[in-house]
Design a protein around this nucleic acid. Structure first.
Lengths: 137, 137
DNA sequence: CAACATGTAACTGAAATGGTTACATCTATT
DNA sequence: AATAGATGTAACCATTTCAGTTACATGTTG
């Protein structure tokens, strides 16, 4: 099962996108909404910052989006918080002396890549803005 | 990242489907092609048996498919070896007093379910026979 | 009965994950 | 400039998952 970083990252970004002017989006405040530790939030915010999805400044309270909510797809977020390129693992070193062992990796690679693409394509169709509007329609 | 059980299970089934009459598909033989321990193979074979994808008999050498290779989709195999229903995790207990925290799970659930369905739909289009023919075309 | 295969429990080490403490660094305000 | 408060990160921990392994009970066949 894929970890919960994607879910938390979307939560963070939706919160920031829904921000009323009064409130600063500190890691402490966000942690209160997600119900976890502020360091967990800062860790994920760090990944989102490296992916240029949001901006923070050391010492100054509050994170802000680096671009409009409709320009942040869930695939962007997924890629930001998921270090691995491949969704499916393939067993290493199958026996090259076996006709199946010799060819299986190529077949699996092809199929898995395709299945992953379909999933990612779906994520690419939804943005943080979509989440926000569906949430408060 | 998803574990390698799906990859190994497909390897096992492809091997059995490619079986020449002489060779019995023992866990030892299959382990030689996959390049792992026979118990790892028997464990996965156990899951495939519970899903009625293949048949074995305690004490008698060799596993055989329970139906034709073109009637075994990769989604069948995925469901057999993947105990979790959900591909994506969602963080638990977001703050119900926060407008976003209160609604986020429903939104995530909906989107994640859709993305997973796209991936699974792709797996359902390929069968063990497809693997076999693409491998030895 | 002997040889051999399956079925499973149990243990292990490695890796990922999420939570936590601690602390260095930076900024704004007084 | 001093202080309060926020961010950035390292380090540690417990839990879980995974794959590999040993061990052994059970079943089958010659």
């Amino acid at each position: 099962m894929i970890n919960s970083r994607l879910a938390v990252a979307i939560h963070i970004l939706t919160l920031i996108a829904s921000r009323k002017d009064q409130v600063e989006m500190t890691s402490e405040f966000i942690a209160g909404s997600v119900n976890t530790n502020p360091v967990v939030i800062r860790r994920i915010i760090g990944m989102l910052r490296k992916a240029d999805i949001l901006k923070t400044q050391a010492g100054v309270a509050g994170a802000v989006l680096a671009r409009n909510p409709d320009q942040i797809t869930l695939l962007d977020v997924y890629r930001a918080v998921e270090p691995r390129d491949e969704l499916f693992s393939i067993h290493e070193d199958p026996n090259p002396n076996c006709p199946v062992g010799k060819r299986i990796q190529g077949s699996l690679d092809h199929i898995f890549h395709h299945a992953q693409s379909m999933m990612e394509s779906e994520l690419s169709k939804k943005t943080i803005k979509d989440i926000l509007t569906s949430m408060f329609a």
